[in-house]
Nucleic acid binder design. Structure first.
Lengths: 255, 255
DNA sequence: AATGACTATTGATCTATATCAAAGTAAACC
DNA sequence: GGTTTACTTTGATATAGATCAATAGTCATT
């Protein structure tokens, strides 16, 4: 099903540009959004290890392969362990619209719960890996253990909040520049979520993917990047990005 | 706190234009998103009437008053019983950005659960009313009754899905025209959700509110409405709107 | 019916971004 | 290493929508 494009940009094991990238970085379990339902759960006075019955850990996914198809019935919800996924919606005429990205430590497919179908297609950008939780089994377990359910609610609503933040950051912006800058700041925080904040990172996705997601043309995107670089606000070479003046950039992002 | 603007447009009890509007229409409980946690819950073999302990029914809210403040700590989640609410976010410089509308039967404040604060201010457009559920009490009850929790999850994820649909309909559109048409179709469905579909309705909000929400200028909005009317696709007089050719409009909405 | 305060529409012009076209650059494959 | 293919940048031009300015409805009060 998934057509695997071998080109993998910054995610390839050996990458001439872009410093520290590569060597597939796994998120630590303690930093992962799925964590609340992965460990033993307290019930009454005792600890139960239910997770074994619904959790599958760290499945590898090749670059370009997909975790699930749009409209497929919900089976699992996922957490990204390493790599990045792009979420693609397709309109009637088959054009792809990227509706989001998911980085290591973030949930994937969690917003499929209500209509019981995945709302988009999730494609790995570069070599990636996933943990998955079987919904039906999770529901079974949580019928018996209220605490598990509460943790599940908390996990869902947290991710939902993050998703909305991302979207709102975009909907609210007026100029292409503030839009792009808001995106870069958002990405920087999410990519380095667990490390300390360096403001340097490799953009895992192509310019086309970014432009598509932001609703801009690639040419516009490119011009703005050039302009920001000339203004000494960023340094970008290929996929490697460094935010040089976060204060000014933050102000720009709020138009 | 809330400054009540007395002018109420189509929601006023007597309205010269706009046919059937007015006489505050309450949504039936069976059609309301809150319904799953409002009635008796099955636990073991017996039915429990827990809802009395956390549910407050049909509080009236005057036009222009607010249900909650942005950033206030989450206390209740609401369902709109009658009327409409606009959700306003404020940026640093105090400009208001409308991030959504909620119609009768829809939830309000449900997306405050993760950060435990409301993400926006909710203001009644016209005389409205709300049911509310006290979160802390709901959580207490649901610790004892797993079924209640499952219903709560279902309720949250359903509303979340609808919210996202609304947002995506907007983010994806390219032209102001397709954006506006998508909005009109979305509104038509939500306003007449429980009745049969007539494609005629009163726009409860002002042109300014619509323009603000869609990220357009009022002048642009006005021009597009005029153009759609000249093309015999809609009939609009003041707040009263009739969609004349839903097929063509739907095609327009997908650009 | 006249006044005042909004609210909505229309017209003229400007500008940010799209579009069209071409060239430059990096990665993959033989 | 050289060729092919995909990705990215730059330039010239067109246009959708913003902005500025004015007019015209609408409703509430007197």
């Amino acid at each position: 099903m998934a057509k695997s494009k071998a080109r993998s940009g910054a995610s390839a094991p050996f990458n001439s540009r872009g410093m520290n990238s590569s060597q597939e970085q796994y998120v630590k379990c303690q930093d992962c959004a799925m964590n609340p339902v992965c460990g033993p759960v307290v019930s009454g006075g005792s600890q139960l290890s239910l997770a074994d019955s619904y959790l599958t850990k760290r499945c590898a996914i090749q670059s370009g392969e997909q975790a699930f198809e749009k409209h497929a019935p919900l089976k699992d919800i996922f957490a990204v362990c390493s790599g990045v996924f792009k979420l693609c919606d397709q309109n009637e005429i088959g054009e792809e619209k990227i509706v989001g990205f998911r980085f290591a430590g973030e949930l994937l497919g969690d917003d499929a719960i209500s209509p019981n179908r995945y709302n988009y297609k999730a494609i790995a950008i570069g070599k990636s890996s996933l943990c998955k939780v079987a919904m039906s089994q999770l529901v079974d377990c949580s019928k018996a253990v209220p605490n598990l359910q509460l943790q599940f609610i908390s996990l869902l609503t947290k991710q939902n909040y993050l998703n909305h933040q991302g979207i709102n950051a975009i909907v609210a912006k007026k100029t292409a520049e503030s839009l792009l800058v808001a995106f870069l700041l958002n990405i920087a925080k999410r990519i380095n979520a667990s490390n300390e904040q360096t403001w340097q990172f490799d953009l895992p996705m192509s310019r086309d993917d970014i432009a598509n997601f932001l609703g801009l043309r690639r040419e516009t995107l490119s011009r703005i990047l050039t302009k920001l670089q000339k203004g000494n606000l960023i340094m970008i070479q290929g996929k490697n990005m460094k935010l040089l003046n976060v204060d000014v950039l933050s102000r720009l992002a709020n138009q």
